[in-house]
């Protein structure tokens, strides 16, 4: 799995805010040589199919959303500063001084403008600024900005992927490129095994916007089962074990009323029998992932949820563990290869 980190870093070097998933060109390039069939549907989902050699095999949908959180340009002022609003998933509080990329007629790097502490009045330093009162500075004058940027252009957070200690990595959009990289690795390894399922990998659109991509893909594919991959909150300086999963403790198997109990048990069974580290994450209802929609597609799709622990979600400084990602690959491969066939009722 020596390529896994490269896959992740490559996928995170591009920007694809919700609704503009086609900008993730590297994903298509990585997957194309490995898939039996590859297509992008009208929702913007990229779908890679690997057929089973077993006749009459059931269909499994492996879903990881490809989009990332982002902002949207609302206007440009007379000084050439870009005004914006939240598009999907970004908390105003993390924005001041953030490096961003405006996906204009060509990508423009910029920064969310801030006032230096020297110039702040005491009362102002206490205030939280709203995104409608912030602007992005890309360095150009009004005329040039207006030539390049239009209302409705999307904006992404910008950062460079970095190795930390202890097999942890730091970067932006690990939610959910970590899962996309895991699926690319799974696809690479599926080439040398005999999957028990026809595997439909859905790199889905707009999960951060409500998830129309996975919803319509599940309708179109009509899978017998779906395994949803996403990220979840890891234990951080501000959360303890009651609120987060351990980084490096393996992927979190979701347990929730909306998820399929048999499928979830089977996933855990595979983890145990293959001695793959895992943890559990209990939710009382909706999971905040594509599973919420996929379960209700057509006449219902049994879903299990695997989440990679991640710190500082929806920021440019997300942290995941490469070993968690590797264990997620092993777990998915184990499930696809060994369970399969008839559903256990």
């Amino acid at each position: 799995m020596e390529n896994l980190k490269n896959y992740l870093f490559e996928l995170c070097s591009e920007y694809a805010p919700s609704g503009r998933e086609e900008l993730l060109v590297s994903l298509e390039r990585l997957v194309r040589p490995m898939a039996d069939k590859l297509y992008r549907d009208r929702a913007g989902n990229l779908i890679a199919v690997k057929y089973s050699k077993i006749p009459g095999a059931e269909k499994i949908m492996l879903d990881a959303h490809a989009d990332e959180v982002g902002l949207v340009v609302t206007g440009i002022d007379e000084r050439g500063f870009i005004h914006f609003a939240n598009h999907a998933g970004i908390d105003d509080k993390i924005l001041p001084a953030s490096a961003v990329t405006v996906l204009a007629s060509r990508p423009l790097h910029g920064v969310v403008a801030t006032l230096p502490p020297h110039l702040l009045k005491d009362a102002d330093s206490e205030k939280t600024i709203k995104s409608k009162d912030m602007v992005i500075d890309v360095g150009y004058d009004e005329k040039t900005v207006k030539e390049l940027v239009r209302a409705g252009d999307f904006i992404a957070l910008r950062s460079v992927c970095t190795d930390l200690q202890n097999r942890l990595v730091l970067g932006k959009s690990f939610d959910n490129r970590a899962s996309c990289a895991v699926l690319v690795q799974v696809l690479a390894m599926l080439c040398s095994v005999r999957p028990r399922y026809d595997v439909y990998m859905v790199f889905s659109a707009a999960e951060e916007f409500g998830g129309y991509g996975a919803h319509t893909a599940a309708f179109e594919i009509a899978p017998d089962e779906a395994l949803i991959l996403d990220t979840t909150f890891a234990v951080s300086p501000y959360t303890d074990k009651s609120k987060g999963r351990e980084l490096g403790g393996g992927c979190a198997v979701g347990i929730s009323p909306i998820l399929d109990t048999h499928m979830t048990e089977a996933v855990i069974g595979v983890a145990r029998s293959h001695a793959i580290p895992y943890q559990t994450e209990v939710m009382s209802g909706k999971t905040g992932t594509d599973a919420d929609n996929v379960t209700c597609a057509r006449d219902g799709v049994p879903c299990a949820l695997l989440s990679i622990p991640l710190r500082y979600m929806h920021s440019a400084g997300e942290i995941v563990s490469l070993s968690d990602m590797e264990n997620t690959v092993r777990l998915i491969l184990g499930y696809v290869e060994y369970r399969g066939g008839n559903r256990i009722e």
Partner: peptide
């Protein structure tokens, strides 16, 4: 003109998510 609406929805929201989309 380009319309970037930050609040409120329209009928396409339902069509984009429903059925085949």
């Amino acid at each position: 003109q380009r319309d970037v609406l930050t609040a409120g929805g329209t009928d396409i929201g339902a069509v984009q998510t429903g059925g085949r989309g």
